[in-house]
Design a protein around this nucleic acid. Structure first.
Length: 564
RNA sequence: UGUCCGAUGGUGUAACUGGCAACACGUCUGAUUUUGGUUCAGAAGAGUCCAGGUUCGAGCCCUGGUCGGACAACCA
């Protein structure tokens, strides 16, 4: 059986459909997909799943993938959003090869199709208000009823529709509706609205139109126009499929049809994916903009320090299916750590400094220690880090009265300073009033210098450190999950904002080794023993700013119970 | 009280025309380690929503339930 084959990779259900289609030589064996966002917000990791899917399928089957903006509602859409979407898709590493389209590119054709429907007696102009039409539509368990304007003549409908287009009527006074079936169990088939009057200027077509097609009247036809073979979308559009089919069947004679396939959208634990809710967080000032590193937006993840590779890897790992899912955010975090582990320079930074004075080390002496940049990759070389009599270590790396399994600095204990010497704690200096440890006096063993005769001696722990004299101050933003609840939207009785984690952002001033003096925004590092960090765009030469992408696995935190 | 869709370890996905339920994340052990990271070795954890049926044999097919989701915007 092939399942046992080394190279066998199970097909997801969409790939299975495509391979069947290919086998049957459907659409001359073309595979053409598209990613069709509405430019009314920023893209998030859920969109990334769709982008990776659509572009990934095209690549896998030597096909094409278009980027198309479904921009049929000028009151909600903005140029700013199309720009950010274009940037995000590009950043993720995908190329639409010049096929960037807009549903608004097809407004003329769509209009002609609407007239065709009228002429064929399949559409009519309705003068009723949205409210009345809604009431007439019935409910999911009771059928709707026909509009009193249902039987207007073709001539009257055509005349009215043309006058709608000419701008003779105010917003909301008339709509064009299809005549399908007001009693259909599928609500979307109960004489849906095709065109509405909107005296609004469009980001693309300006003031050319004052009537705009509904998404449903534009989407399927746009796919048809572009020659899309597999229209991949999320589950909630499943009920729209019969409607798209109805439009095409009533408008198009050829047998070619885009085939819609629905998959379950991504849900990620401890965050939210709803564009509207995300907008609330941004506009309510709960976060600092669409690219806040706590948000699951692509721009937020980018600023947080995620790489396109890690997101694509993640998209691949979560798979595609039709059942509801809630992906553990740990998988996303694993995806970046795995990527960054291979790529990033290891550097030393102390986030919560404790002064250490090495009493037997000559005052004023500076030694340049050679540190390996990445033990995973020797080709990344090494760098020099200055060592002096006074250094800083992490406060958590010292305990005056340590438990058994504490392998770090404590009175009388000896530890290794990464890339430097072994030091032994001889004395603890405390603040007289608070009793807080403010300094530790140590002695070092000159024989234990890295590479030296005694450097292979066994010690319990290795600490990172920064020279007090050379350390650079840096603002470090420590991010944690934005919500305390795994599924903030999963509580019908509670507002999701109640679950916002008040500690989702902690800003500290740390000290970093001097080799980081000239870093540029988006450069990524591993701060040894702490985590992966990324230079924030706010960072300036005289004020470095780092974002913590994700902490390293911390088994001590688990043992000591200090974990999340 | 409608129509459609779905249900496999804690999470996600797989098991091809029925043939010993697999992989990843997570969890736990141990080894290695100049990062309590990485890596390596191993373990625990589901008998596939329930009840019937077909079959030598059902996660997969059939019937009936249960539970979950989607659908009633001049939003997409």
């Amino acid at each position: 059986m092939n399942t046992k084959d080394e190279n066998y990779k199970a097909l997801n259900f969409i790939e299975a459909i495509i391979e069947d289609d290919l086998q049957e030589e459907k659409n001359e064996k073309r595979v053409h997909t598209r990613f069709p966002p509405e430019p009314n917000g920023y893209l998030h990791i859920g969109h990334a799943k769709s982008i990776c899917l659509n572009f990934g399928l095209a690549k896998k089957y030597n096909g094409m993938c278009n980027l198309r903006f479904d921009d049929t509602n000028p009151t909600k859409e903005e140029e700013e959003f199309v720009d950010s979407i274009v940037e995000d898709v590009k950043w993720l590493g995908f190329d639409w090869e010049g096929r960037l389209f807009y549903a608004s590119d097809y407004f003329d054709q769509l209009y002609k199709w609407a007239e065709k429907l009228i002429i064929n007696g399949k559409a009519f102009v309705d003068d009723q208000s949205a409210e009345v039409i809604g009431d007439q539509r019935g409910t999911v368990t009771t059928p709707g009823t026909e509009s009193p304007f249902y039987n207007r003549s073709v001539e009257e409908n055509l005349n009215l529709f043309r006058r709608m287009k000419a701008g003779e009527f105010p917003d909301g006074s008339k709509v064009l509706r299809a005549k399908i079936d007001t009693t259909s169990p599928n609500m979307l088939l109960r004489d849906p609205v095709l065109y509405r009057i909107l005296h609004a200027s469009h980001h693309n077509t300006g003031d050319k139109w004052c009537i705009y097609p509904m998404y449903d009247f534009a989407h399927g036809q746009s796919d048809y126009i572009e020659g899309i073979t597999h229209s991949i979308c999320t589950l909630e559009f499943e009920v729209h499929r019969p409607l798209y089919d109805w439009f095409l069947d009533n408008l198009i004679e050829t047998k070619y049809r885009p085939q819609q396939i629905e998959f379950a959208r991504l849900n990620l634990s401890y965050t939210i994916m709803s564009k509207r809710k995300l907008m609330e967080l941004v506009e309510g000032g709960f976060v600092n903009g669409w690219d806040d590193p706590r948000l699951p937006t692509i721009s937020g993840l980018r600023r947080r320090g995620y790489t396109p590779e890690s997101i694509r890897y993640f998209a691949d790992k979560i798979g595609v299916a039709r059942r509801d899912n809630m992906i553990d955010v740990a998988l996303l975090e694993h995806s970046v750590k795995d990527d960054l582990n291979k790529k990033t320079l290891r550097v030393m930074a102390v986030l919560n400094p404790l002064r250490v004075v090495i009493t037997n080390y000559p005052e004023g002496k500076v030694e340049e220690m050679e540190l390996v940049n990445n033990p995973e990759d020797e080709t990344m070389g090494s760098r020099k880090v200055p060592f002096t009599r006074e250094i800083f270590i992490e406060k958590d790396d010292f305990m005056e009265d340590p438990p058994k399994k504490f392998f770090r600095l404590a009175p009388g204990a000896e530890v290794r300073l990464k890339g430097a010497y072994f030091i032994k704690c001889e004395e603890v200096v405390k603040d007289e009033t608070t009793g807080e440890v403010i300094e530790v006096k140590c002695t070092y063993d000159p024989e234990t210098k890295s590479g030296g005769p005694q450097s292979n001696r066994k010690v319990k722990g290795t600490l990172h450190w920064v020279s007090a004299q050379h350390g650079l101050k840096a603002e470090v933003r420590l991010y944690d999950r934005l919500f305390l609840d795994e599924d903030p939207l999963g509580h019908p009785d509670k507002d999701f904002q109640e679950f916002i984690n008040p500690g989702s952002l902690k800003t500290v001033t740390g000290l970093i080794e001097p080799s980081l003096r000239n870093v540029k925004p988006f450069e990524k590092f591993q701060f040894i023993r702490l985590g992966y960090f990324c230079v924030d765009p706010d960072s300036k030469e005289d004020k470095l700013v780092f974002n913590r992408t994700v902490p390293l696995r911390d088994s001590w935190a688990k043992i000591s119970g200090k974990g999340r």
